[in-house]
Design a protein around this nucleic acid. Structure first.
Ligand code: FES
Ligand code: FES
Lengths: 144, 144
DNA sequence: TATAAATAGGATAAAATTATCCGAAATAAA
DNA sequence: TTTATTTCGGATAATTTTATCCTATTTATA
């Protein structure tokens, strides 16, 4: 469904959000340990999220990654997914035709579109805050 | 969503089904031209579908691939997807946790499960016949 | 100012996926 | 029986994705 990079990116963002509630910066080392991902690869993904203005990096000693407390609730999953995987998950043809086109549909189009649109809607309406609260309360987990 | 191999496999199966209505065998060459896919790679995927008893191969001169006319309507998309991509699309965690577990869910689990289950249901209830008829009637297409 | 700690980013490497090639085996027709 | 045609299957190559490594740059603190 999503690429590994995107899975790591979402999990990392949730972990950063959780810590950002308390104003705590976290490092790639801590992140990769908490979400069980390769450290250097995760760091690369974090850089991409910084470039897309979804998270903030503080360079130098005592630095790390953080998200502005008051933006956590406004960051939607779709923004993270698009920053890493692009929009092919929303616009691509389920059977791999060059483009998904109502006027030149593949045989699966009608049925696939319904599901693809629901996925899109879900990613557009789910924000980092609610996911981070799930982790905080112990209702959900980021590894194993 | 699906691997390239799976996309080719589904498109190829639909094309084979369409021709099987008229009892016509088709070759990897013809298939790859009609669905716009790499020939040798497509041939490999067809072999896998044969091993899974989803399509039939006729070896030797004047051979090719075909599907028993009376089984076309009973072959569901899910069977093709599982033969090629396995069941990770049904059972895998959306955020890449080792396994999707109700009792140890990732933060996206509840919302993701709904969509994953709908995808599963769609693949389980869509059969090759209806897809092939769409191609035959000109309502849908297998390339470009 | 010097030092230590941390992100940024380029260069590689490993692994997985996608794609190609070629000879062997099967088989229908001449 | 020979020939031409076609699938089967192993070996290999190209590409993409995933992962690692190392150095430069940044910056808080001593
Ligand atoms: S054309 Fe294939 S999903 Fe729209
Ligand atoms: S645990 Fe992640 S989708 Fe179920």
């Amino acid at each position: 469904m999503f690429s590994k990079a995107c899975e790591y990116g979402i999990r990392a963002s949730i972990f950063i959000a959780k810590n950002s509630f308390e104003g705590k910066l976290v490092s790639p080392k801590e992140i990769s340990e908490e979400i069980n991902s390769p450290k250097a690869f995760t760091a690369k993904i974090l850089q991409a999220l910084v470039r897309h203005d979804l998270i903030k990096s503080v360079k130098g000693a005592y630095g790390g990654f953080i998200i502005d407390k008051d933006t956590i609730a406004s960051i939607k999953l779709t923004q993270i997914v698009e920053a890493i995987d692009g929009d092919k998950i929303y616009s691509g043809c389920g059977l791999g035709l060059e483009k998904c086109d109502e006027n030149h549909p593949c045989p699966m189009h009608d049925k696939f579109k319904v599901i693809r649109d629901e996925l899109k809607h879900m990613l557009e309406t789910t924000n980092l805050e609610e996911l981070a609260l799930g982790i905080k309360s112990g209702a959900s987990f980021l590894k194993i």
